[in-house]
Design a binder for these strands. Structure first.
Length: 344
DNA sequence: TCTGGGGTCCTATAGCCT
DNA sequence: TCTGAGGCTATAGGACCC
């Protein structure tokens, strides 16, 4: 299940008079500031505007569009209501970000189509939002199916449909094939998923590496044995921010880093976690991006320690270029001892 | 004037150990 | 004692996803 133009649709619930207009949700909502498009309404997409595009570019393409700031907390609230509805249909649910989920309905009595229809109906009546559903034997195919008939779609794909409906699609439509891999595949003459399926595994491994090569070999045949992951432990927590204007002085970077670190530590604590490794990231004005990391001997949630470590990581950077982004991230997460006791 | 912010996973390399 | 293979961990970078 994949929500349609999710951020935009949630905004339209608050501002119904905007329906039918090109609406763009992204950044601070000010297209003269730095930021990118999170979601564009279907009207805005007609101007060639899509996710990830700089807001300034979107504005150049469609100055009459309505630009709105990202209001993450209201999307989270809507997401929670939707996930609650979904989980009533099947307890075997995998969350995929804020607006997607996989449901395992293998063991249910009703037909898949009937389940999908009532699920769509219930989401629509309870939240006013539409979604698109893909029904298939595995996650890979379900994901592609959900995308074939957007918005408000319902698509069934079976093993027998692979040659006729999957093979004609561009390889880029496979999960895990982004711009770089698509480019590599083009170089060996592959545009469509069907062409991928025509190549020996060794060729794909030579092209894309062991892990992705094996994956592509299976994926092109519609094979995907990955189970649904119903419970996930966080592996890392981070905060990063892009300055409105590039920064060249250390004190400004240090002050911002301390603020970001406070935020990270408070999120760690609220989840009862300690971290072993602290990584600081800088992106320079030319988009060159570097990190420095330090691992502690023992995981901690102590602010002073994490801040000191982050500042030390920052001190290892040479500031020969202006900085556009700074971030801090912690990983090697472990449950805090007292929470462990509570848990067991 | 380009290019967010939250993440996960993979790969390459270097150092250390057996 | 020397050399090399292989495993493991830490680090850095990069691709990708929503």
């Amino acid at each position: 299940m994949d929500m349609d133009a999710f951020f935009v649709e949630v905004e339209l619930l608050k501002r119904p008079e905007l329906r039918g207009e090109p609406v763009i949700v992204g950044g601070s909502g000010d297209p003269t500031q730095r930021g990118v498009v999170s979601t564009a309404s279907y009207e805005a997409r007609q101007y060639g505007i899509g996710s990830g595009m700089p807001l300034r570019t979107a504005f150049a393409r469609c100055p009459e569009a309505v630009f709105l700031p990202v209001d993450y907390s209201s999307y989270s609230a809507a997401s929670r209501r939707i996930k609650a509805i979904l989980s009533k249909f099947s307890p075997i649910m995998e969350d995929v970000g804020i607006d997607e989920a996989y449901l395992d309905i293998s063991d249910l009595q009703e037909t898949s189509i009937a389940i999908a229809q009532s699920l769509k109906q219930e989401i629509k009546s309870r939240t006013g939002l539409t979604c698109s559903v893909g029904i298939a034997p595995n996650k890979l195919l379900a994901k592609i199916a959900s995308d074939l008939d957007k918005p408000d779609g319902l698509t069934v794909i079976t093993q027998d449909d692979i040659e006729t409906r999957i093979w004609p699609l561009p390889a880029r439509r496979l999960w895990g094939v982004g711009p770089k891999s698509a480019e590599k595949l083009t170089k060996i003459g592959v545009e469509k998923i069907g062409e991928l399926a025509g190549l020996p595994k060794e060729t794909l491994i030579a092209c894309c590496g062991r892990s992705q090569g094996n994956y592509l070999y299976q994926a092109a045949r519609g094979i995907d044995e990955r189970p649904l992951v119903t419970h996930r432990k966080p592996k890392s927590i981070g905060r990063e921010t892009t300055f409105q204007r590039d920064v060249s002085d250390r004190p400004t970077l240090e002050a911002k880093l301390i603020g970001l670190t406070k935020d990270v530590v408070s999120r760690m604590r609220s989840r009862g976690l300690r971290a072993k490794t602290i990584t600081v990231k800088l992106r320079y004005s030319d988009f060159d991006t570097h990190t420095h990391a330090i691992s502690l001997t023992t995981p901690t949630n102590r602010f002073a320690t994490i801040q000191e470590t982050a500042l030390f990581c920052l001190s290892r950077f040479e500031l020969t270029k202006k900085v556009r982004l700074i971030g801090v991230r912690v990983d090697g997460l472990a449950q805090s001892p007292q929470d462990k006791a509570v848990e067991s």
